[in-house]
Amino acid sequence: MKLSSTVLALLAVIVSGPALAGKLDEVRNRGALKCGVSTGVVGFSAPDAGGVWHGFDVGMCRAVAAATLGDPMAVEFVPQTSKTRFSALASGEIDMLSRTTTWTYSRDSDLNVEFAGVNFYDGQGFLIANALGVSSAKDLNGATVCIKTGTTSELNLADYFRTNGMSFDPVPVETDAEAIQQLLANSCDVFSTDSSKLNAHRATLENPDAYSILPEIISKEPLGPAVLHGDQQWGDIVRWTLNALLTAEELGVTSANVSDLAANSTNPEIKRLLGTEGELGAMLDLPADWAQKVISAGGNYGELFDNTIGSNSPIGIERGLNALWTNGGLQYSPPFR
């Protein structure tokens, strides 16, 4: 059950000896990256009929595996509910968490989670049946709301209703699938979670046009990959893998032209990124061409976004805040230098 992972984590805390060498060596010795993903959110992380995982968050795992092991497929996906994810990370059951996890102050400081950056700027929204005739979240007084336990959404929801002097009737659920099922059975009026996930779920409904997402976004949800606090090098690797994806999009390096650019480009920025100039890879104990492998694994940030949740996918989320800073968005990578 859901407690089991927590109990395992506790057991690990109680009986395990002190931690061994760094995460990078551990992953290399194992030959596979253990990546915590969701239990199934189409677009972000979900297995296909053949059991192969796909999605935006999965792409992040594959990129890190490409950087550290040279093989984007050397990933062992460990599905986590929102309740079990931090215990799994703390116990070392997973090497990194790539599971639409919101970066917050207390998670960063108190839960000892280190966020490697923001790969998706999100906000909490409401998915509701059109038949109810509600057009604004301000009209939700007295509604029955499906909400996932152990999430920031749960706290935001309570705050939002309290601020607006409204009441609601929470129905706590464990997974998105459970929430959607309850929504379809009308046993809750609204499902509230990150609006990106609402978009993804709405796209998979049998009748997507009967449901809509309310215009109000009630919170800031910067989602990003996370590692356990304490191993600086490992944290840097995940952080700069994300930055490499962003920088690649900014410089126009794609999965199609990466090998060509590595051989022929004269742009010093591209040469530093792809490891044909300078010693950037060695500084993180990675091969010189690590970023090439990252980019050829699933494309740059823009390609990954479009193919999994953006314009080339059935979900069709707009880039919006997630456009590069050069296009008026918030995605911005520090320089590779």
Partner: peptide, 23 residues
Amino acid sequence: IAVGYMDITGTLGGITMNQTGRE
């Protein structure tokens, strides 16, 4: 918790544990 009934495992052992990280 399987049906979302908020017993003590759901509050103290569920949401509180998850929000505070005091497993």
